[in-house]
Nucleic acid binder design. Sequence first.
DNA 1: TTCAATAACGAGTAATTGCTCGTATTAAGC
DNA 2: GCTTAATACGAGCAATTACTCGTTATTGAA
Lengths: 212, 212
Amino acid sequence: MKRTATPRKQPRQNRSKNMVETILAATARVLCERGYARTSTNHIAEAAEISVGSLYQYFPNKDALFIALHKRHEQQLQALIEGMLSQLLAQGKLLSLRQAMASLIRAWIQAHQLEPELHRRLEAEFPFFEPDEEVQSTERRIQAEIRELLSLHAAEIGQADLDLATYLIMKTIESHVHALVIAPPSGFSPEALEAGLLDAIMGCLKARPETA
Amino acid sequence: MKRTATPRKQPRQNRSKNMVETILAATARVLCERGYARTSTNHIAEAAEISVGSLYQYFPNKDALFIALHKRHEQQLQALIEGMLSQLLAQGKLLSLRQAMASLIRAWIQAHQLEPELHRRLEAEFPFFEPDEEVQSTERRIQAEIRELLSLHAAEIGQADLDLATYLIMKTIESHVHALVIAPPSGFSPEALEAGLLDAIMGCLKARPETA
DNA sequence: TTCAATAACGAGTAATTGCTCGTATTAAGC
DNA sequence: GCTTAATACGAGCAATTACTCGTTATTGAA
């Protein structure tokens, strides 16, 4: 497996912009159908009804395809979450802390309804690539926005360290939603799970130091 | 890549029992050093200082190696956690709910200190195999034991559905510990994280239905 | 129409990989 | 020692794979 790193040309004409889209769409399709391990660049080219040569004009190597796909998907999710966050921030203290958290959780869950099978494949069977800089930067922005949301209700929050609180609730939401998408637990209704998750988040915020 | 499924012979003599151990140990070593994608059966045989032929006498195909390794590792972790759980159950109501949860969290974290790099590789860059039946059964037993632990303190617990509560706290602990091992967040001390996690768990348990 | 830049093509290649199978070595029962 | 079963070996095969590069087609401006 070569791993050429030579950068490829940027699409100039219209047909080649379409090409990039076609290739990524085919990559997603084949990934969902065959899984990462059994997906080859030849398969992708065939599914996209183009030649391998064309594929390699825009992507320097196989992994670049998946990295691009991964990035695009993450950015779509992030956009949905940020949309809800800006709404919540705009409303200020009109909403209670609990209401705001409930909305955040719901948005997070809904975002993950976007191409869930692709999400599953990307998250579950993907080798560990270094996270994209742009995605990370948005992640930091989301974190800052959640922190701001929390600070609106600082009076109600027991946890003194707002940064820690932000980190904890993000990780908690993220992991539960992840579990919901990857392997939805049987026996519990989505509503019950959502409510339970909200309780956990609120508990984590309300908590005041107690003696062990 | 063939994927022969013919079952292989069970080791009878001593030398072959050692062989299986040697092979698994080498698999772990190579996996940690090279990562899953760049690990071949030839590499493993070389690292184990045996021949590929010998390897294929005990493992029907490449994935069987990783499946066996994965299973062994999971069982080790489960054993540690179950050990702590039986201790906690034996102590009955001597410990407060909070104390019991704190011990559980600590045991969970400590269990994951066992070969963390191997754990990282297995969890992060492993294709999606169907979970092992034996491992799943132990998982269910652990879940039942946690439920029992909770039911000892049912009076203090707001969440009416103990099964849901059990599921929620398991997933919460699991995911936070996972994050701690895979990508420890910078900026927070381990103690603060542990305390925050405990708060989240307790909040999730204490929560009583509120009006949204 | 001409022509050069851009894009698309796809047969072919070099490398790798999983795995087999015929052979050699060792162990155990007699 | 002799015999037989168990174990270990490793050269090599068949299949797959990522990727190249010489060629052809398309575009659009002059």
